[in-house]
Nucleic acid binder design. Structure first.
Lengths: 180, 180
DNA sequence: TGAATTACGTTATGTTATAACATTGCACAA
DNA sequence: TTGTGCAATGTTATAACATAACGTAATTCA
């Protein structure tokens, strides 16, 4: 395991101790698995991954419980769009975790945890409030294609585009779309 | 079934014919089920709902296939956050369906399909592009609490708020949060 | 009419998630 | 040092969501 990951886990351990919770050996292994693997993993994938990488066997049940713990401790995030899990990318930062936003590549499951500009977030919240709702968690997840996969796809792309509904858009910032 | 729903289904039928696809009896029933029920339904819930309301039995398999068809025809949407499905709220409108946005009440599963202002959408897209990704579909789903459920919850709310991490936020538009 | 296509039925299975209860192991008090 | 209590983990079963594979019926159209 890389030095970087060891450092992160040491930090996570400190954070837990400070909060009066325990980052046990098992929990460290699951977190290490998430940190080690660049992409989002399902609980069951994580079971396999930990088995391969660390020779540790977990029941799916344990992994779910541990993931729940890691989420509470803000060491990992559940991605609802993908039903997968990732390590938090801000373990070392004293970061408020107010509004995590995730870009999930549909092709390779690479995940980027980004910061959306506060005024964009506030505009979203206002729109939501106008509709008579309130954001429960400001976590926003978006299905994307990462540039790597987009590039790879360009060669072999002439998909069955059955219904070419107008995709003209009143926005200016739209980048060109692969394969359309 | 209400007159309104019959009208919507007639319109949906026309749309399909115009596109060279068929809104069969079974497909109409599933669509009617979605339209009739105000909240989001899972495929299996839809099976039960149609059985109760219309005395029609579907296998889950059929419902999945029909939902897939309805999605293609933009008569229904799959909500990835909830693994549930809703009728499109714009069946009668010649609406581009560019950027459907959904607010999903975590408590009662009520769904509101809203329009986010174009400049907010374009700001999001720019942020995503800066991170080296591209929005695959501009569909955005947000976990919310609707005002009804929030009101109901106020009486009985003093949850186990273990870790009161700072929730101060640099935005101005945040409405007060239930139960915190 | 008959071939092709589309829709639907059926069964099996895969995937994600939780419930329920048993067991282990550590911390702390007596 | 031994209980006692609680947190963590193990184990089994099952719920909930989804798709694969293949067969049959219905519809379209040459």
């Amino acid at each position: 395991m890389s030095k970087r990951i060891e450092t992160l886990i040491a930090q996570a351990d400190k954070n837990c101790t400070a909060r009066g919770t325990r980052l046990t050996a098992k929990r460290k292994q699951v977190l290490a698995g998430l940190l080690n693997c660049k992409r989002a993993l399902s609980a069951y994938e994580l079971v396999d991954y930990c088995e391969q990488e660390f020779g540790e066997t977990f029941s799916a049940m344990s992994v779910y419980r541990i993931l729940e713990f890691l989420e509470q401790e803000q060491l990992a995030h559940r991605l609802n769009l993908a039903n997968k899990y990732v390590a938090c990318s801000h373990i070392c930062e004293h970061h408020s975790h107010d509004a995590p936003q995730f870009l999930i590549c549909q092709s390779c499951h690479k995940v980027s945890e980004i910061i959306i500009p506060p005024n964009t977030v506030s505009a979203l919240k206002q729109t939501v409030a106008d509709a008579g709702f309130e954001l429960k968690s400001p976590q926003i997840e978006m299905n994307c294609i990462c540039n790597d996969c987009k590039t790879k796809a360009l060669g072999r792309d002439h998909r069955n585009k059955q219904h070419s509904v107008a995709h003209s858009q009143s926005t200016t910032a739209m980048t060109t779309q692969a394969g359309t």
